[in-house]
Nucleic acid binder design. Sequence first.
RNA 1: GGGGUCGUAGUUCAGUUGGUUAGAACGCCAGCCUGUCACGUUGGAGGUCGCGGGUUCGAGCCCCGUCGGCCCCGCCA
Length: 616
Amino acid sequence: MERTHTCGELRAEAVGTQVVLMGWVAKKRDFGVFTFIDLRDRDGVTQVVVSEETAAEAHAKAKNIRGEFVIAVKGEVVRRDEGARNAKLSTGEIEVKVAELLVLNDAAVPPFQLEVAGSENLADEYTRLKYRYLDLRRPALQHNIRTRAKAVAAIREYFDDRGFIEIETPILLKSTPEGARDFIVPSRIHAGKFFALPQSPQILKQITMIAGFDKYYQIARCFRDEDLRADRQPEFTQLDMEMSFVNREQVYREIEGMFNHVTRKVGGIELPAEWPRMTYAEAMRRYGSDKPDLRFGMELIDLSDDLRDTDFAPFAAILSGTRASLPAGESEEQAGGLRSQGEVKCIVVKGRADYSRKQTDELQEFVKRYGAGAMAWIKVGDEVTSSLLKVLGEEKIDQLIATAGAERGDAVLIVAGKKSVVAAALGALRNEVARREDLIDRSKFECLIVTEFPMFEHDEETDAYVAAHHPFTSPMDEDLEMFKTAVNDPSQHHLLGNVRAKAYDAVINGYECAGGSIRIHQKEIQALNFKALGLTPEKARERFGFFLDALEYGTPPHGGFAAGIERTCMILCGTENIRDVMAFPKTASAQDLMMDAPGDVDEAQLDELGIIVRNS
RNA sequence: GGGGUCGUAGUUCAGUUGGUUAGAACGCCAGCCUGUCACGUUGGAGGUCGCGGGUUCGAGCCCCGUCGGCCCCGCCA
């Protein structure tokens, strides 16, 4: 018996033809003298009917089948009676009248029902991950995994057409101690030495530019041994690309071009030919985030100027940048710097002057997670009420309402503190409120390129500057002099915090979908950068010697980006969970429940590698 | 590393103030049923209440610890 059709393709036109379908029993409805079977494969579901009268042998076999049995049926496609059609099925106009039925394989009773009718009451994720092969049979996951395959195919198509060369880089390479934790792989031949899995092919892709390939791309697996999140797994896939002799705008055009091609091909979605651009500074100021979700407004509004004259101690301390506002441990010298300066900002929630005490308390708890000490509120109801009324007085409250642009019926949610904390707290609160108030239009795709990221971030613990993107990112031409001053004059070191980089992110619907930069191609600036990062020439050579050597031999100006395949697919599939777009994901504690990895290895294997495991 | 939340039948859940024999639906098993598509119907089996300890005359329920799923903070150049 040879399959002639899938279970998703038969329509009324096929009526009268003989077909053979193969698939899994999704559902059986037994009426004694005849039995309906919903037969499922990756394409869809077709109802087949087995009658005792016309196919006694097949009918007898049908008696003994159960969900997830694998069967083949041969029979005629017949039109269903007027009242017996099923509009919910694409194949619902027809059914297959079975003449022959073959049980290709039986199946144990599944540990969970693949789809509970009419609800989203799926089994616990633990069970579904353990039996991932069963969960993957669900149409929703089948669809997501196929969408991902289409997206990857579209990406290849885009770059192939534009003359990019797909180059594979090694999975086994050398550990570099900075950045994310590496997964390491022991070497047998060099017992006691280790490879590291790539966190990204960053250096290697730059070397393809030095090697003269001009345009490189790769669908690259990346590994980072860090804690997981709803959108983060320890291994994930990136579209990685790099090009020579380009400026930032030329890279932006490829970002736009690629995403636009993928969304058009996969989802039939038309994104703007040119995406809006916004500097990092503007994004932080207006949205408190470097990846703002632009599907809704509710921008952050600065109330600092209105509060500069206040006696209210917490605000006064924050706004004046006096000692009281500094976190414990921060020195007075640092207080002179810009970063000790705090601010007071707010968002306006339209129509929610009716927030209850419980609700504002919940939101306060929410912002505290981001380091905010408290959340103040003003409710512009029939009467104006506010947690700040006593300390600021009516007049000041009215002034704040005016600055915030709040109208009768609105609620104003206020956070004060260090700039970074205010941004983190209000940026997150903005998303949280939008979610709660259902302000997000899920049919929208709001794209943005965020530009001019800071070159460095200040690490409070070590009081050192670390690369915000990676140590090969080029500073902005405008900031080059400041960069040089900051590196060469120890008293001006803090200026590093103000140096902007030619680094950028692509953001869709609040997800960072891609990021990249123009790289440093001159060894002098690269050396300067290592110095800024506190790497002595010896240390730099130890870690990146081969790369520094490579830079000596005629490096073209170059830049590129990497795009997260999973995050892109999450947006295409409309899911908020990365596991929904990966065939075999790991749990939040980085385990594979299906194969029970990671696991122990034989003593003999360890011996060969020269490894002794310390039992604690 | 920290926080939140959940864990009761194969699955999804209910379970009152701590009180008799822990329930429902779906699934499963055995029948009946000529048009279902969440088929209907009759009957049946199925429980270490995650695990360990404690309080109590008595614990699914209270307390402590622990394990696991999910989410968040830190972390993720």
